[in-house]
């Protein structure tokens, strides 16, 4: 792989992360907030699954920190959870990426649920715990859109030959 190709790959990855951040702070009516999928987490899971040698827990931690500032939450909250979930993904990636899409979606549901539960737990420690049922909806939406995200990202990766 030439340096040129590698650099182009980094640009594609960076742009996909920026796009995921845009989506995660898109203004929505307050009633729909609970249905918001974890865009940045899905994107990071995809890249860490496809390119585990390039996207690891360090990158995930940094992205989580940026999300903390974007969302104005406690600094380190999303960073901690992103690093944890990507750690799990890296352990499972060889099994997840060969599975059919609907089985992948189930795994994604579990990963997103862990993400939400830890976030709710940290919020609970701060004394601002939201309604518990809200924690179950967003991972469900994330799992439902996962096939679309996966196919889109795979086409993106193959088209630009990011390795």
């Amino acid at each position: 792989m030439s340096i040129h190709e590698r650099r182009r790959g980094s640009w594609i990855i960076t742009f996909s992360f920026i796009f995921a951040m845009l989506l995660s702070i898109l203004p929505l009516p307050p009633n729909l907030h609970a249905f918001m999928p974890s865009w940045l987490l899905l994107t990071t899971i995809y890249w860490s699954m496809a390119l585990p040698h390039r996207i690891g827990i360090g990158v995930a931690w940094g992205l989580g920190l940026l999300l903390d500032v974007l969302r104005d939450t406690l600094l380190g909250q999303h960073a901690l959870v992103m690093a944890l979930v990507i750690f799990l993904t890296l352990h499972l990636h060889q099994r997840i990426r060969v599975a059919p899409l609907w089985q992948q979606a189930i795994t994604i549901y579990v990963l997103c649920l862990i993400y939400m539960l830890v976030i709710f737990w940290i919020k609970g420690l701060q004394g601002v715990a939201p309604d518990f049922w809200m924690a179950l909806i967003s991972p469900l939406v994330s799992a439902l859109i996962w096939p679309a995200v996966f196919v889109f990202m795979r086409n993106l990766r193959r088209h630009y030959q990011v390795n």
Binding site: G56, I57, Q77, A79, L80, A83, F87
Partner: peptide
């Protein structure tokens, strides 16, 4: 590395 990052984020959260 995960352990380091977890400790780092908990420190950050507490400080914040």
């Amino acid at each position: 590395r995960l352990f380091l990052l977890v400790v780092l984020s908990i420190t950050l959260m507490t400080l914040d």
